[in-house]
Lab assay of single mutants.
Amino acid sequence: FIDQHRAALIARVTNVEWLLDALYGKVLTDEQYQAVRAEPTNPSKMRKLFSFTPAWNWTCKDLLLQALRESQSYLVEDLER
């Protein structure tokens, strides 16, 4: 899901800070967390977050999807259609 809908997630996720907090310490290191937060816009934050995903396994991507479902369920539901 995460890889399949990358472009839509970059464009449409609005609550990136919540995602970062949910992933911090589980998937994201402090350095990665700070790097994403330093980006000026939500799309650039999501691009930076996605720059780390090639090194993630399915469990990490599932944690991101779970966080998306909790914070932006309407968006996930729309993309699952």
Rank of each mutant, 00 (worst) to 15 (best):
S44N: 07
R6N: 08
H5F: 06
F52A: 03
W58I: 11
L49D: 01
R69N: 06
S51T: 12
L75V: 08
Y33H: 03
S44Y: 00
R12A: 04
R69T: 06
R69P: 03
E77Q: 12
A67D: 00
W18I: 14
T59D: 14
R69S: 06
A22K: 15
L9N: 03
L20N: 03
A35W: 00
A38Q: 12
D3K: 02
Q66V: 07
Y33N: 08
L49M: 01
E80V: 08
L19G: 02
K26S: 13
E70K: 12
H5P: 03
F52C: 00
E31H: 02
K48R: 12
H5A: 10
E31D: 12
A22Y: 14
R12D: 04
R47N: 11
R69M: 07
R6Y: 09
N15I: 01
L64Y: 03
L63C: 08
W56H: 09
E39W: 00
W18H: 14
L63P: 08
Q4P: 00
W18E: 15
P54F: 14
A55I: 10
Y74G: 15
F50P: 05
S73E: 11
Q32L: 00
K61C: 09
L68Y: 03
Q72I: 00
W18F: 15
D3V: 02
E39Q: 10
F52M: 08
T59A: 15
D21H: 12
Y74D: 15
E17M: 07
C60Y: 10
E17D: 14
N42R: 06
F50H: 00
A35M: 11
Y74Q: 15
L68Q: 01
S73K: 10
L23Q: 03
C60M: 15
K48V: 07
D78T: 09
Q32D: 02
R12E: 10
F1T: 05
N15D: 12
S44T: 13
R69V: 09
L28S: 02
M46D: 00
L68E: 01
F1A: 01
T53A: 13
I2M: 11
N42C: 05
I10M: 07
M46Y: 04
D62Y: 05
L79C: 06
F50W: 04
T59M: 13
W18S: 15
N57H: 10
A55C: 12
S44E: 14
L64P: 00
Y33F: 10
F52G: 00
T41P: 02
H5V: 12
Q72Y: 09
H5D: 03
D78S: 12
E77K: 10
V76F: 05
Y33V: 15
S44F: 02
V27L: 05
T14W: 01
V76S: 00
L64A: 09
L79R: 03
V13W: 01
R6D: 04
K26L: 08
G25C: 06
Y24S: 10
R37G: 07
L65D: 06
Q72E: 15
D21G: 09
F50E: 02
L20G: 01
V36A: 08
T53I: 13
Q66N: 06
S51G: 06
K45M: 09
V13I: 07
F1C: 00
L64R: 03
T41N: 14
Y24K: 15
M46F: 02
L9C: 06
Q4R: 12
A7L: 07
